[in-house]
Nucleic acid binder design. Structure first.
Lengths: 129, 129
DNA sequence: CTTGACCTTCCTATCATGGGAAGCCTTATC
DNA sequence: GATAAGGCTTCCCATGATAGGAAGGTCAAG
């Protein structure tokens, strides 16, 4: 399987497959005589794992740990759970921050009549009242 | 006022002040004979505006528009409001996505006993069941 | 044997920010 | 007046994950 087919089969773009290989997230692919990367079912499975983890917002560093745990038969599920919950915490912190921004802005915007007059509490707030 | 003092007064780092100038977000600062940037109250006010807008998560492109509206006495508050609400929409879309990630992960983690055994529904999900 | 679709590597860009080096300027101290 | 400390300048590099593109090699079908 060439990289394009592996990309289709895994949902990871060829560009990203090469990138993941270059940073050591996934092992170097075998090559054909012409230098083309070769992928089998196993490699596609790894790529799918990576894609699912990315879809859940895991940073690449965390995916590296997840992959290591995945292939470690003696793993402790506690380690996986901790990784997951750390990520949940990070997500929720960002969510809280963004929610605060959205709330503030929505509040200001509600007080803005939004017509052709220049007076605007949003700008007033940004300029420090 | 040198750039360091302007940074302290505005809460924008000297590094970022130079960057904002280089991309044209703020006008080029006046210079002393030795080439040092000079800032006055007006410039600090602009920097504070930028910092508040950044704190609310506005991307630089939006801040550029906000600054233009701020200095436009004939502005329509509707334009400001639209900018703000567009940003709120962007924030809330990201929040929704991240909330979905966090919910999924928390759900999976709840089903993970998190002890020294290897069985883990999180890895099971990532590997495609 | 040509054409088109694929592959390779390498460079560039994004967005906002920080770190650091090399060299000049200013201010205070001796 | 010399020197040291600290601030300023520009320029380069790095982040994280992704995309775009150029130049050139390869494969398969016609």
């Amino acid at each position: 399987m060439n990289i394009g087919e592996a990309a289709k089969a895994s949902g990871v773009s060829a560009k990203m497959i090469r990138y993941y290989e270059s940073i050591g997230l996934i092992p170097e692919a075998a090559r054909s005589d012409a230098g083309y990367r070769n992928y089998g079912a196993r490699e596609v499975q790894i790529l799918r794992f990576v894609r699912r983890a990315r879809d859940l917002g895991f940073p690449v560093a965390a995916i590296q740990e997840l992959l290591a745990l995945w292939s470690d038969r003696a793993r402790h599920s506690a380690d996986v759970k901790r990784l997951a919950m750390d990520h949940v915490s990070a997500l929720e912190q960002k969510i809280t921050e963004m929610q605060a921004m959205a709330d503030t802005l929505r509040h200001l915007a509600e007080a803005c009549c939004g017509d052709d007059r220049p007076d605007c509490p949003i700008l007033q707030d940004l300029s420090g009242d």
